[in-house]
Design a binder for these strands. Sequence first.
DNA 1: TTCAATCTTGACTAAAAAGTAATGATTTGT
DNA 2: ACAAATCATTACTTTTTAGTCAAGATTGAA
Lengths: 159, 159
Amino acid sequence: MKISSQEEYGLRCLVQLANLRDGESLTLPQIAEREGISAANAGKLMWLLNKAGFVHSTRGTKGGYFLSRPAEDIRLSEIIKVLDEDVMNKHCDSYTGVLDSCVHNGDCGIRPVIVGLHEIVENALSRITLAQLVGTESSVDTMFHKIQGIHRIIEPQRV
Amino acid sequence: MKISSQEEYGLRCLVQLANLRDGESLTLPQIAEREGISAANAGKLMWLLNKAGFVHSTRGTKGGYFLSRPAEDIRLSEIIKVLDEDVMNKHCDSYTGVLDSCVHNGDCGIRPVIVGLHEIVENALSRITLAQLVGTESSVDTMFHKIQGIHRIIEPQRV
DNA sequence: TTCAATCTTGACTAAAAAGTAATGATTTGT
DNA sequence: ACAAATCATTACTTTTTAGTCAAGATTGAA
């Protein structure tokens, strides 16, 4: 269970945009350089994010990308859903209740695990907004503090 | 964020073995047929699981695979760790505290998310044992009930 | 002892994901 | 109008993951 490259870098790019001030924007080469990827690669990611409505872009000189809505309103769960469309599709459609479409009908001990995992991850990511990821402190201390913070946000209440 | 094929089918194979009675075992063709994969593929998975100590095998006629310890003692977190070694390695070693080895030093807003996700998944999987996945009910009702059960197990307490 | 069933292992092939390149379209400034 | 900067889109290449195959080793039974 891991985060795909597309998920990771798509998210990173959005964080870059979330760090901008009002009216500012970033070009593909700028985004690419800040994240250590090629401009072509960044272009592909931004294309996806644009299609999905997270960012707007303007072409020509002085063009670039910027968030299309406030970072406070963008939840990580939405982003991930776009960057990795088939999170769940792949593992039996029974997630949606349609048991017949899964090869493992009648003999699938692990379906509850897959569904359960999907749900806790989705739940955790829905509690974090882009705005909560701004800032670029790098010391072990601040990073540790931040991890604790996210962790507090992430942990769901017991039912 | 998704479960890899290796994780999924490795786990499925172990569930098959967990369903056996004492003294029984399953051959590769048997495992393969039950999971809808090829015997060769099953062989590779079982090889990994054997190396990692989850199963024992006997060769020759009447040979096969069986769990090397009680299903109650095998936590899903251990299994997944073996089936997908580089769960976290990939995303910056800073997870281990060594910040210098990550390309994104000083500009990594998402590290807390990656670490946080890893932790809640690990935590969830460590609460489920193979024994809890035996049985093969397939009706929507029983499956739904099981999902709820796993969900209750999975959700961590609030800190 | 010999044969058939079975696991073991490494090399090979196929499919999927990631990343690159190239061409075209739009905008701004002169 | 023109040139430069920039995004948009599709096709292509590389890398990684998944899956197959075949030759070898071990065991049990006749």
